[in-house]
Design a binder for these strands. Structure first.
Lengths: 144, 144
DNA sequence: TGGGTCGTAACAGTATTTGTTACGATGGGT
DNA sequence: ACCCATCGTAACAAATACTGTTACGACCCA
């Protein structure tokens, strides 16, 4: 499906920020998070920018700048993150419009749209069942 | 997510073959199906080749060659098709291994793997609830 | 005023998906 | 035995998406 890693990296960033704050720090920098995720700080800033639009994190500029959580980790679900960083639908329709003179070509898109909607709704419900607090707990539970 | 259209096109092809066979024809050619889906015959042959590996369709060569269903449409689910044409997982991990010296970098991948597995299992269950017979019914039910 | 960090544009590199051309293999009909 | 439509598949092109990287102005506290 050519899956991307945005949801994973965004969850990583949120878990990192939260843990860092629990250690007494005010804000986390994109450079620190990028080092943990082994990627570029700009990638982190881009993702966190999306999360900020969604009201999940806040950022400060100037000296002592960085990122902090805007909500409790427990109140943020994977669905919140998913919707913030994933724009499109899960399954795509035909690239070119199918033959509208053919019965199947005419009816296939509305048919699949309806089916896909139901499936994506189920996916959303499932994503909504997992909080970022759950994620952090699982992260910390990894066997040494 | 960079969704692709393979599941949609494969469902289109199966519905088309079935309808064509119900009209009394033995086999459907990749060219006919491609015309309905508005794509290239090779794209159809590639997809149907995957479905054949999965035992969903059969192909004949030589004169009078073409494709036919290997199973009843009612016994084929979207999950069968999905597994035949979609190789990878839904969500990707980090491209580069995260910092194993960091608590989060160390635990994030097993944590997300476990969570993603459950979500994908739910997706599979949902896909398994829809048969290609359902799809064809919906296709034919599209308002003129 | 200085310096660290965000915000964002721009571009490169890689990967994936889809479309296209080409051509040998197949096998029933003649 | 030959013809010919179609499959099977490789090879390549084109389009798109994703990630990484560089660059630089904006910001703001000390």
């Amino acid at each position: 499906m050519s899956a991307n890693s945005r949801l994973t990296i965004a969850a990583h960033a949120l878990a990192w920020i939260s843990l860092y704050q629990r250690q007494g720090h005010e804000v986390a920098t994109s450079e620190q998070i990028a080092a943990s995720a082994n990627t570029n700080p700009v990638v982190i800033r881009r993702l966190l920018g999306e999360l900020r639009k969604a009201g999940l994190v806040e950022s400060r500029r100037g000296v002592g700048a960085g990122w902090s959580l805007a909500r409790e980790l427990e109140s943020i679900t994977l669905l919140d993150v998913y919707e913030a960083v994933e724009p499109g639908p899960l399954f795509a329709m035909h690239r070119a419009t199918p033959d509208q003179g053919c019965v199947v070509g005419y009816g296939i898109q509305p048919a699949m749209q309806g089916i896909y909607e139901g499936i994506e709704e189920t996916l959303r419900r499932e994503l909504a069942r997992v909080t970022l607090e759950d994620v952090l707990r699982d992260v910390l539970a990894a066997p040494r």
